[in-house]
Amino acid sequence: MNLIDRYVAEVGRHLLLVKGRKDIEKELRSTLEDMLEERAGKSGKPADEAMQTELLKEYGAPHKVAQTYNPNPYLLGPRIYPFFVFILKIVLFAVTLGLGIATAMQIASNPPMTGVEFISAVGKGLLNILSACIAAFGNLALVFALIERYAPAADFKLDEEKDWDPASLKKEPEPNDVKIWEPILAIVFTFIALSLFNFNPQLIGVYHLQANEWKVLPLLSEAFFRWLPLLNVVWVAEIILNGLLLRSGKWTTGSRLFSAGTKLAQIFIIIMMLMGPSILALSPEAMTSAGIADPEAAAALNQLARTAIKFALGFAALGAAVEIVKSLYKMMTQR
């Protein structure tokens, strides 16, 4: 076997799944022999191994030569990729929603759980959703890769231009327009918060079964309720602002400043809550005596809850800060 034979065989090894491999090898050998013969003729001496080496070096690495014959160099080509992404989004949403509901129902139908058992069940549910999403991604990629390989382009035109009408373009939203659902949602949720924290604070807590009777362990401490009057002012201000926005349908410089002011007040309250005594009323002792968890688990759970509340407050402050920046930016750019 000379160098050319070995080269052709190596290219062939990279073409195992390509149709017409033997034909390609035969044509490649014939071309290389033609080229070699021409070189030998020009140099006036018979072709030797050094000449073959030089020729093959110029022709290129076998895997690169093989690559040029590959009709499908991509797993998913540009013809099919946009449709793959479209279907993938739907599938991942459906899998997450379906398994999320299934996990919630499973947790709800189980006998009362301790806090640790609950966290473990939620964790397992999330892991299930994650692995199901990865499996769905893999299966979908496999199906689309098969379509890419075996469905002729003529039978599977995804990018075919349909009669397209420019009128179908979405209208550019007016930057100062208020999306109607935003103030409505804000008013509804602020009312719920107002009535819950002011008139039904006993409902905010950890629910557990004790001697076949539902009991509630209060979640929030006195430290939280000390800030309630100021929170009420902010909430009422937000209801008024959202009512005005709903009526006018437009943001103005005044309403943006008002909104930034309420957010600033929220940040102030949150910072004071973070700096002052804990707003969490739940103690390990109370949890143990209520039978929610054993002392060790209750201590761990309590620590977890304290950290979680700090994070939640931190994120709320961050969210409010982002809203302030957005308000000020829009106020300056869209006057």
């Binding site: 017409g20 390609i24 490649l28 690169k64 030569v65 014959y69």
Partner: peptide, 11 residues
Amino acid sequence: DQGTLYPLLRR
């Protein structure tokens, strides 16, 4: 380039 022409002929 050969790597362009031969696959093109096949295509």
